[in-house]
Amino acid sequence: MKRNRTSPLAIVALLASTLAAPAQDKKALVFVVNGASDFWKLAEAGVKKAQEELPNYDLQFKYPEQAAAAVQQRLMDDLVAAGVAAIMVSAVDPKSSTEALNRIGGQVPLFTTDSDAPDTNRVAYIGSSNTDAGMQAGEIALKAMPDGGKCIGFVGLPGADNARERIDGMKAKIAGSNVELIDVRGDDIDMTRAKRNVEDALAANPDINCMVGFYSYNPPRIYEVLKEAGKLGQITVIAFDEDPITLGGVREGSIAGTVVQQPYEWGYQGMKLMAAVLEGDMSMIPENKLVIVPTAIIDQSNVDAFEAELKQRIGG
């Protein structure tokens, strides 16, 4: 983990430069995420990479101080007020924020990422298809449990679009097979509750033989509970995203596989896309306005290569 050794003086300088930014003639492109997580560190790396190639733009990466729609909305309003040129956002609650997103989109070109808001005036969506990712998870399940199985899922916010699409995608893929997803437990992104949910699921359902962690921190909690209960290997674990523990589990064989998104690419490609659009080049945007960066299945065979690439991107 990276330690922050920035001195207070540097923060003041940083703040000053941020405030001074609109005064410069460099156009600012901002990537706004929905909350703090490691996942976005990769996107941030992609944005940094893009900055090298876009010296005429000032690329920024913003975390709202809370994962709440209102907080994120205020952050974007402030950015628009500060005169940024374009915004790419992973909206906290895209469904009910249509109007608010339209307001932003009416003032600056607005792009969505991570979870789309198709009913808004956004220019385009760039990111994964969570439904496709869910289907890939189903693929892992079918391959790992040819004789069928009973799965229980764990997720942060079961009602969120990305969660629902992943769950629906998986259900669509396993429909008609002997593999079933009987329940999905939510934890409001509280890791203690996430772990407890796994413990309780194990206690309440002795016949369960497969667990799915839909948010990046869920598979590590599953892994820990199974390890403490001595059930690693007995229960098939299907994961999403690339938490170090998840990748360790995949390498060890105790996690069947994980579906990873490419946030690095979202950051990198997204920024370049925004710059292109600002310069009037719409050629990168397809008819349906969805720029899909495909998700990938990582299993024991390709985990080492994947991890090396990650290290290089974050460490780079």
Partner: peptide, 18 residues
């Protein structure tokens, strides 16, 4: 809360695998 987030730059603090 702010200090905790600043300290890790919002990243998750965790033990390495194993």
């Amino acid at each position: 809360r702010g200090l905790a987030r600043y300290y890790t730059e919002d990243a998750t603090a965790g033990f390495p695998f194993g």
